[in-house]
Amino acid sequence: MTVLPKDIPGDSLKVTVGTANGKPGDTVTVPVTFADVAKMKNVGTCNFYLGYDASLLEVVSVDAGPIVKNAAVNFSSSASNGTISFLFLDNTITDELITADGVFANIKFKLKSVTAKTTTPVTFKDGGAFGDGTMSKIASVTKTNGSVTIDP
């Protein structure tokens, strides 16, 4: 049996954390987006972790974005102690894959008090994996961190 590389060099799934701005007490939304989904033969499963400074940001909610089908079954998240974990699994293993680019999740943060303008990162942590529509590992994932700026 011969195994051929399935990824064209330079191609990767792009996962990007967005940015937001606000004043202390505001609730802002930071999107997590996927790009080049079709090039990577869709997404059938993924789990990953984001870190944030809990002294500056309070997670209000984490909701599935419009590219997630049947989110009540296929999407899960949790947030505590400065870490947000995400889990997606197409429970049907074929019919509810992520097949389009767009917003995977929206994180709502309540901004805490600061004395001066502060930009705090929302960054990928170690761990996690992504699988394509056949549940094979997506070897190349380009992750881009985001941030939230609090301006009193």
Results as ranks from 00 to 15, higher is better:
151 D>N: 15
68 V>F: 08
21 N>D: 11
102 G>E: 04
119 T>Q: 10
68 V>E: 12
9 P>R: 10
138 I>T: 05
64 A>C: 14
52 Y>M: 08
40 M>H: 07
66 P>R: 12
124 F>D: 02
25 G>L: 10
142 T>W: 15
69 K>R: 10
89 L>Y: 00
17 V>W: 06
139 A>R: 15
96 E>G: 03
124 F>P: 01
69 K>A: 11
131 G>K: 02
126 D>F: 15
18 G>F: 12
22 G>D: 08
82 G>H: 15
83 T>C: 07
147 S>Q: 05
133 G>M: 04
127 G>K: 15
34 F>L: 10
96 E>C: 00
67 I>M: 09
148 V>F: 04
143 K>P: 01
107 I>T: 03
138 I>H: 12
132 D>N: 10
125 K>I: 03
110 K>W: 00
41 K>I: 11
23 K>V: 11
94 T>R: 02
120 T>S: 07
22 G>Y: 08
5 P>L: 07
147 S>M: 06
25 G>P: 06
97 L>N: 03
90 D>R: 02
149 T>S: 15
95 D>H: 03
95 D>E: 05
129 A>K: 01
140 S>K: 14
32 V>F: 08
138 I>R: 01
151 D>A: 15
49 Y>K: 00
43 V>G: 10
129 A>F: 00
61 S>Q: 14
147 S>G: 06
57 L>A: 08
87 L>A: 00
22 G>N: 14
144 T>K: 09
138 I>L: 02
82 G>F: 15
143 K>M: 04
10 G>N: 11
61 S>N: 09
106 N>P: 01
59 V>E: 14
109 F>S: 03
100 A>D: 07
125 K>Q: 02
39 K>N: 13
90 D>T: 02
64 A>M: 04
108 K>G: 04
58 E>R: 11
54 A>L: 09
128 G>R: 03
68 V>T: 10
52 Y>K: 03
143 K>A: 00
116 A>N: 06
20 A>P: 12
47 N>R: 00
41 K>Y: 10
116 A>C: 06
31 P>E: 10
39 K>D: 11
115 T>F: 07
74 N>C: 03
34 F>E: 03
87 L>M: 03
118 T>R: 10
113 S>D: 07
132 D>T: 15
33 T>D: 12
116 A>M: 05
96 E>I: 00
87 L>E: 02
145 N>E: 05
54 A>E: 14
47 N>L: 01
91 N>R: 02
61 S>H: 12
135 M>V: 03
47 N>E: 00
130 F>Y: 05
75 F>H: 10
101 D>R: 05
45 T>N: 00
19 T>S: 10
123 T>P: 07
82 G>P: 15
107 I>V: 07
56 L>Y: 09
95 D>Q: 03
89 L>R: 02
60 V>G: 08
13 L>F: 06
148 V>S: 07
16 T>Q: 10
136 S>N: 06
53 D>Y: 14
45 T>Q: 00
139 A>T: 05
118 T>W: 05
26 D>Y: 09
58 E>W: 08
22 G>A: 10
44 G>V: 12
22 G>I: 08
17 V>E: 08
81 N>G: 15
25 G>I: 13
16 T>R: 12
42 N>D: 14
63 D>C: 09
115 T>E: 06
15 V>I: 06
140 S>H: 08
6 K>N: 12
107 I>R: 01
60 V>R: 10
24 P>V: 11
123 T>K: 14
77 S>N: 15
134 T>I: 13
74 N>T: 02
20 A>W: 06
93 I>Y: 01
36 D>Q: 11
142 T>H: 08
97 L>H: 14
31 P>K: 12
151 D>P: 15
141 V>K: 02
44 G>H: 02
92 T>F: 00
129 A>G: 04
104 F>E: 04
78 S>F: 15
111 L>N: 04
20 A>V: 11
118 T>E: 03
141 V>Y: 01
115 T>A: 07
127 G>M: 01
96 E>H: 00
147 S>T: 06
79 A>L: 14
64 A>S: 11
91 N>T: 04
3 V>A: 10
148 V>I: 05
101 D>C: 06
15 V>G: 09
108 K>C: 04
31 P>D: 13
136 S>P: 01
68 V>R: 02
65 G>R: 12
95 D>M: 01
111 L>G: 02
103 V>H: 06
102 G>S: 04
54 A>R: 13
72 A>E: 11
128 G>Y: 02
104 F>A: 04
143 K>F: 01
146 G>I: 04
68 V>Q: 11
4 L>V: 13
23 K>H: 09
20 A>D: 10
72 A>T: 14
24 P>F: 10
113 S>A: 07
127 G>I: 00
98 I>H: 00
85 S>Q: 00
72 A>L: 13
58 E>M: 14
48 F>V: 04
56 L>W: 08
51 G>E: 09
146 G>Q: 03
43 V>D: 04
29 T>V: 11
37 V>H: 11
6 K>C: 14
45 T>I: 01
132 D>K: 02
13 L>C: 10
86 F>M: 02
122 V>W: 01
130 F>Q: 01
80 S>Q: 14
81 N>Q: 15
103 V>W: 07
7 D>N: 12
40 M>N: 15
56 L>N: 08
43 V>E: 02
13 L>H: 10
21 N>F: 08
17 V>T: 14
42 N>P: 04
16 T>C: 10
22 G>V: 13
50 L>C: 09
10 G>R: 14
38 A>F: 07
18 G>H: 13
89 L>N: 00
57 L>N: 11
111 L>S: 04
137 K>Q: 01
66 P>K: 11
125 K>S: 02
29 T>L: 12
127 G>F: 00
22 G>T: 09
8 I>D: 10
96 E>S: 03
56 L>M: 10
128 G>E: 04
48 F>T: 07
51 G>S: 10
142 T>P: 05
30 V>P: 02
119 T>C: 13
24 P>I: 13
65 G>Y: 08
113 S>K: 06
25 G>F: 13
142 T>F: 04
55 S>E: 11
10 G>L: 13
79 A>T: 15
73 V>A: 05
52 Y>H: 12
145 N>V: 05
54 A>F: 13
47 N>G: 03
104 F>V: 03
21 N>T: 13
114 V>E: 05
33 T>N: 10
94 T>K: 05
93 I>T: 02
75 F>S: 04
60 V>H: 12
152 P>M: 15
45 T>H: 00
91 N>S: 06
93 I>E: 02
46 C>N: 08
141 V>T: 07
93 I>N: 04
13 L>T: 09
111 L>A: 04
145 N>R: 08
9 P>F: 12
41 K>R: 11
87 L>Q: 01
5 P>N: 08
52 Y>S: 14
123 T>F: 12
83 T>D: 07
57 L>G: 10
88 F>H: 00
42 N>V: 08
128 G>V: 03
93 I>A: 01
63 D>R: 13
79 A>D: 15
111 L>W: 09
82 G>R: 15
32 V>M: 07
107 I>S: 01
118 T>I: 05
83 T>I: 15
6 K>P: 11
3 V>E: 14
19 T>L: 12
6 K>H: 12
26 D>A: 12
106 N>I: 04
3 V>N: 11
128 G>C: 00
48 F>S: 06
65 G>S: 10
130 F>L: 05
114 V>L: 07
93 I>S: 02
116 A>V: 06
97 L>E: 01
31 P>F: 10
45 T>F: 01
150 I>K: 08
108 K>W: 02
121 P>M: 04
72 A>P: 13
61 S>D: 08
142 T>Q: 07
99 T>A: 05
45 T>S: 03
23 K>R: 10
86 F>C: 03
50 L>H: 10
66 P>G: 14
70 N>Y: 07
131 G>P: 01
90 D>K: 02
92 T>Q: 00
148 V>W: 02
45 T>G: 02
140 S>M: 09
63 D>G: 09
22 G>P: 09
126 D>Q: 15
38 A>T: 13
28 V>P: 10
120 T>A: 10
38 A>G: 14
118 T>C: 06
134 T>D: 01
150 I>N: 14
30 V>D: 09
48 F>M: 07
85 S>I: 01
25 G>T: 11
136 S>E: 00
47 N>H: 02
138 I>W: 04
82 G>L: 15
8 I>H: 07
43 V>N: 00
46 C>Q: 04
12 S>D: 12
134 T>N: 04
91 N>A: 01
112 K>L: 03
147 S>I: 07
104 F>H: 02
100 A>V: 05
20 A>E: 09
122 V>T: 07
146 G>C: 05
144 T>W: 01
94 T>A: 04
128 G>W: 06
108 K>S: 06
119 T>L: 08
74 N>H: 00
135 M>Q: 03
139 A>P: 15
76 S>Q: 04
116 A>T: 08
135 M>K: 03
63 D>F: 07
110 K>H: 03
122 V>S: 06
84 I>L: 14
90 D>L: 00
99 T>N: 06
68 V>I: 11
66 P>W: 15
150 I>M: 13
